[in-house]
Design a protein around this nucleic acid. Structure first.
Lengths: 228, 228
DNA sequence: CAGCATCCCGATTGATACTG
DNA sequence: CAGTATCAATCGGGATGCTG
């Protein structure tokens, strides 16, 4: 019952849109790309989504086989939603579409940025040549949640929580909102002034943190013919 | 006026969905991937879209900068819609999402297939190792329109009309509906019986045509945990 | 006929309140 | 916390009409 309003088209694209083409669906998928989330997490990370719509989308994604609903073992006992293996294969689509959207001449309106978006943007916006000789392990803390970003020899590893199977401690820990981190990565601000302004805190090797932040850049805006 | 119902999210994905996330929008883009089309062409190739919705989507895509509206020089004089350079960069997204959708366990319901979808499916579903040693130039005719598909050394070139800058004549010409071609490529039928049944006609090297058709295969269906 | 604009109606979405 | 229930607003689909 995802929708009975199918495109009725044998094309794979049309069928994909039957499954994840409804409003909010792909943003829910985005939020799940870094691991399982609870219903209330998703609500918090997708401001603007209504409670009933989130329910409907999750239902649709579950019946489509993109997401599974799972109850965590005790003592947690909470129910979480998680991408299936097939659902995880939407990652390249999400990243490419995000990259495409970031090039839009229609300015980046909006005022919200989720932690997941910020982390995924690192994967898309890394400048591998600038980072060629780096070996930097950062811990990013956004809204109480910890993420890792490990940049070694032009390759980036990111995820929620600490770096798995990594005994090495992060070179630095930066705590800030996703918005602040975005301005540090892509915008005009630098780490020092953000710290003095009280918008970010750094622990560990501040120089390493600052260098890490310079290794990312937004793609160029596409230039399009004079509108209309 | 694409939508005043924006996600209001700085994330590139959310912005992309503001632009091409509405119903039918990405299917319109798909139909434009092989070159400019007129309004009425799009209507014919997207059965189910309402005339006013097609208008709205084209407006939205044009103001977003994804599509341009152009009047062909005389004597044609008709107006066509065409992807901008930035719009063409949606191709990998469309192909990947189509490939993802084709793996859905929810069966390929529906009864329609556009000529563009069929051609694009060739790009996604080529088996390069099977085609490693081929050098086959086919002309495909669907609903009066000609397309070329040239397979050389594991690489496929496809497009509308004849192969450009290619003096070599096609090895064979196959005329059929996109649906019939799909069953020949991916389904149970073979070229000979389709011809005898009157569903396809072949001119030129029939063996080459038949060999070409065996070089493509649908991706495996994803297996997902028992739904709900 | 191509390219929309209008009107109507059902389907989808959104805001909010409410429940186990 | 994890949703469901309700109702208003909006959107999409289909038919139809208009304009060059």
């Amino acid at each position: 019952m995802a929708t009975n309003r199918s495109y009725n088209d044998l094309c794979g694209l049309a069928h994909a849109l039957d499954l994840i083409g409804e409003r909010w669906a792909l943003l829910v998928v985005r939020e799940l790309l870094l691991g399982p989330r609870r219903y209330s997490d998703l609500r918090a990370e997708l401001p603007g989504i209504s409670s009933n719509i989130l329910s409907q989308r999750l239902d649709g994604l579950v019946t489509a086989g993109t997401v599974t609903r799972r109850t965590l073992p005790p003592p947690a006992g909470s129910t979480v939603y998680e991408l299936t293996a097939w659902g995880r294969q939407l990652e390249p689509v999400v990243l490419q579409l995000g990259h495409w959207g970031a090039r839009s001449p229609g300015h980046p309106a909006g005022d919200h940025l989720s932690a997941v978006s910020l982390i995924l943007s690192l994967r898309t916006n890394l400048d591998p040549t600038a980072a060629r000789d780096d070996d930097l392990a950062l811990e990013l803390v956004m809204r109480r949640e910890r993420f890792h970003a490990h940049l070694a020899h032009g390759t980036l590893t990111t995820g929620r929580g600490p770096q798995p199977h990594d005994t090495r401690a992060p070179d630095a820990t930066v705590a800030a909102t996703p918005m602040t981190l975005a301005t540090l990565l892509y915008g005009p601000h630098d780490l020092d002034s953000a710290v003095t302004a009280g918008n970010a805190t750094v622990a560990g090797d501040t120089t390493a943190a600052a260098r890490f932040l310079t290794r990312f850049a937004l793609p160029d805006t596409a230039d399009v013919p004079p509108g209309r």
